[in-house]
Every structure is written in structure tokens, then in C-alpha cells.
Design a protein around this nucleic acid. Structure first.
Length: 272
DNA sequence: ATGCCTATGCGACATAGA
């Protein structure tokens, strides 16, 4: 099909695909909350982070009963990512190239509904400076390399996940309190900026250029009731995906639920 | 300045998170 015909075809058939990211902080502890949220909001694709279980421990049946297939890249005790989808998904990558010794489960990528989707759990990097921060920066560079490969394909791509980056001062409840934190260091922010300058669109900021848009509130110090949050969960869109962006949002109310995660679901809708 | 809280692991405190 020639490009013009393809574009016309897409306009006639246009339907919305809702893609979300949600750091659940333990799938076992969070399953009831996840199922409630799936039933309420009915996303088409969900990228999960911090499932904190091996593949065999993932509740595939309960999630299938809710109408979703699961792709799982798990790990014992911590980390672990997954992609849930109403339509069948085909796995395209598990882990990032560039460091064979890296055994953390932090990257999973799949093709679903004509969209390439990645579930990303970028290392936290604290304390900083130190080996954990060095690992964060190296991992970020490997992600950037993967992003460049995906961008060259001129496809609809959504890089969704917990980036552990507060890109601007408005993305923190207090820039002063965060001064020494790995999430706001110049080296961290420079790498995120490099992704944006490379052609990726930060979906939430594209639709809400100013003001807080927190996606995380610490369990400690009454951070949620005092609205002392951070914006660290992001959905980055390739140019073709950004052209199709119709809506984006943050499901803040999930943070107030019983036994909530410290992160809340964040999502985009694309006309596909 | 420090810890506050939560989830997990073959648990009885330690590690990790952000």
C-alpha cells in the first residue's frame, strides 16, 4: 500500500489504543489493586515494573481472567517487568544489549496492535555518587542505544516505564530536598534530555507543559497526604507515535487506595 | 542529620526502593 493510501486507511479506521505504565511495587501484594484498576480503566496495553517475582510466580491466570495476556521478564525478590495486552503480543527484546554481565530484569519489549512497546525499569542509582549511580548511567546509555535503533525504523513506538528521572524542577516537590538524589543529578537529566532532543516526545509534558504532574509519592513522612510527589514515570513517543497522540493522563486516585503502590498508573491514547 | 514506610526473602533482620 502506498503511503498516502495507508494514511487515508488509518484515518478511516481510526480507533484509540490506550497504553499505560504502572510500577506496582510487587505484583503479589498489588494484584487486587491492579485488577480493580484494569476493570475501571480498561487499557489495551499495560507495562508493569517492579513485579518482584520470577516468571513462574506471576499471576498469569488471574490476569488472563481479566482479559489480558502476559509477557513476563521476572527476577527473584526485586526488579522485574511485564507487558499485559488484550491483543496477542509478540516479544521483540528481553534485556538490553551491551553488558552480558548485567542480570537485572529491567527491559521487555513487544509488538502489539501495530505498536512497538517497551516496559522500562531504569535503575534508581542511589546512593550517589557510587557504583549504583555508575550502573544507572551505563544502563541509561544502553537504553539510549536501543532507542536510536527503534527510532531509525520510523515506527510507532512507546517507551514506557519508571525512568527514575525527575527531568525538571517542577517534577519534584522540592528541588532543595532532592539536591543529592540520583533522580535529579545533571548526568541523569542530561541523558533524558538527550533522548528528547533525539526525537522522543514526553507525552505527559506534551499535553501539560507546566505545573506538577506527579506519578510517585513516598510511603514515608506523609508524602501522599501532603502531595510531596515526584514525576518519574514517563511515556516517550517516537515521532510517528506523537503524531497520533490524542490524550494522556495520570491516575492519581489509585495512590489513595488500600495497600497502594507508591507509584500510580500513567497512560497515553494513540489513534491507530 | 536522620528516619519516617513497604515488599520480599527459606525471613526471625537485611536489603532495596526513591
Amino acid at each position: 500500500m502506498p503511503p498516502a493510501a495507508a494514511a487515508a486507511d488509518h484515518r478511516f479506521r481510526s480507533k484509540l489504543l490506550k497504553i499505560a505504565t504502572f510500577n506496582v511495587n510487587g505484583i503479589s501484594a498489588r494484584l487486587p489493586r491492579l485488577l480493580d484498576w484494569l476493570a475501571e480503566t480498561s487499557p489495551d496495553v499495560v507495562c508493569l515494573q517492579e513485579i518482584k517475582t520470577v516468571d513462574e510466580g506471576f499471576p498469569v491466570e488471574a490476569i488472563a481472567a481479566a482479559g489480558y495476556a502476559s509477557l513476563v521478564h521476572g527476577q527473584k525478590g526485586f526488579n522485574g517487568v511485564a507487558i499485559l495486552s488484550k491483543q496477542p503480543a509478540v516479544e521483540t527484546a528481553r534485556g538490553l544489549d551491551g553488558d552480558p554481565a548485567d542480570d537485572h530484569a529491567r527491559y521487555l519489549e513487544a509488538e502489539v496492535g501495530g505498536v512497538r512497546v517497551a516496559s522500562i525499569y531504569l535503575p534508581n542509582g542511589n546512593p550517589q555518587p557510587g557504583p549504583k549511580f555508575d550502573y544507572k548511567l551505563r544502563w541509561f546509555d544502553r537504553l539510549t542505544a536501543r532507542a536510536a535503533t527503534l527510532l531509525a525504523g520510523e515506527r510507532v513506538v512507546v517507551l514506557a516505564g519508571d525512568y527514575n528521572v525527575c527531568q525538571q524542577a517542577i517534577d519534584t516537590y522540592s528541588e532543595v530536598a532532592m539536591t543529592a538524589d540520583a533522580l535529579v543529578q545533571p548526568e541523569t537529566r542530561a541523558r533524558f534530555r538527550s533522548l528528547l532532543f533525539g526525537g522522543w516526545t514526553d507525552a505527559i509534558r506534551a499535553l501539560q507543559p507546566s505545573g506538577p504532574a506527579y506519578t510517585f509519592w513516598d510511603y514515608q513522612a506523609g508524602a501522599w497526604p501532603r502531595d510531596m510527589g515526584l514525576r518519574i514515570d514517563h511515556l516517550l513517543l517516537s515521532p510517528v507515535a506523537a503524531d497520533r497522540l490524542t490524550n494522556a493522563g495520570i491516575d492519581r486516585s489509585v495512590r489513595g487506595g488500600e495497600r497502594a503502590s507508591d507509584h500510580v498508573p500513567t497512560w497515553v491514547e494513540l489513534a491507530v
